[in-house]
């Protein structure tokens, strides 16, 4: 019989120090979050290196790697145009990091005793940092390429002056909201999904603890629900990575091509 379940769906988002007893407010503090970032990095490296045989007739792994780079190359080229390849490294970095974080966070590593999986992208401090980076690239490219002309992005072309006066502030606000919406989206998806998984998982254990036909029935039902939510989590994890990459490419397109 499982032990008394502690219902704290937030516990999984706690950052705990590794190698020291208490968290220090220092950039070099190594935490479980840092550890899982490095695991994500290692997984990406392993995946990409596995596809580096560079054969003319590719194997399965190479096809997977080429499929992913081709997919992202396609996003940047269709969104930005011929210049898109310059921005592929960042779009690739953002996509793979979010995708691998989401998926590795959804893996049942906790089945190994002592392992505490951690979803890096369930921290808005991480996703916001990435969206601000994307936004900084947009601003940097925009002002470097267009100078102060970049502000014409907010003015609708061909509209009469009163409409311009009215729309430009709205456009400006919507532009400034972009980094928040871009960073909150993957965070919310992972956060909500993992809370849901934790709650349903707790129901499975609590049903078993309660015993009786009703308890077992609830337990079984919630187990099926956990499987379904997990599948959904994998889908959402991929979609969020895609959305982040696509929006980053579209925002960069605004800066490169100005409308």
């Amino acid at each position: 019989m499982a032990g008394e379940a502690k219902i704290d769906p937030m516990h999984q988002f706690m950052i705990t120090p590794i190698g020291s007893d208490t968290l220090a407010a220092s950039p070099f503090q190594f935490t479980n979050s840092s550890l899982w970032m490095l695991i994500v990095f290692a997984a990406i490296l392993a995946f990409m290196w596995g596809g580096m045989k560079r054969q003319i007739v590719p194997g399965r792994w190479q096809v997977a790697v080429e499929g992913m780079t081709g997919f992202l190359d396609n996003i940047t080229r269709t969104s930005i145009g011929a210049e898109g390849r310059r921005y592929l490294p960042w779009v690739f970095t953002a996509f793979t990091f979010i995708l691998f974080s989401n998926w590795i966070g959804a893996m049942p590593f906790a089945i190994v005793p002592g392992a505490h999986p951690f979803t890096v992208t369930s921290q808005f401090s991480v996703t916001m940092f990435m969206s601000v980076l994307s936004f900084a690239i947009v601003l940097g490219v925009g002002f470097w390429k267009r100078g102060l002309h970049f502000f014409s992005l907010f003015v609708p072309k061909g509209a009469p002056l009163p409409v311009k006066m009215f729309v430009a502030p709205i456009e400006f606000v919507s532009f400034m909201v972009r980094p928040f919406s871009l960073g909150l989206r993957p965070f919310i998806a992972m956060f909500a999904g993992h809370v849901l998984l934790d709650v349903f998982g707790n129901f499975v254990v609590q049903g078993l603890n309660a015993g009786g036909p009703l308890g077992y029935a609830i337990s079984a039902l919630c187990f099926v629900a956990v499987i379904g939510v997990n599948a959904l989590e994998l889908l959402v994890g991929a979609i969020q990575a895609y959305v982040f990459a696509l929006l980053t490419a579209l925002y960069i397109n605004d800066a490169v091509n100005l409308h």
Binding site: A25, F30, F97
Partner: peptide, 12 residues
């Protein structure tokens, strides 16, 4: 944690 989060994220 924000300092270590950002530092390690930047590294990765």
């Amino acid at each position: 944690v924000y300092q270590s989060q950002w530092f390690w994220l930047l590294v990765v």
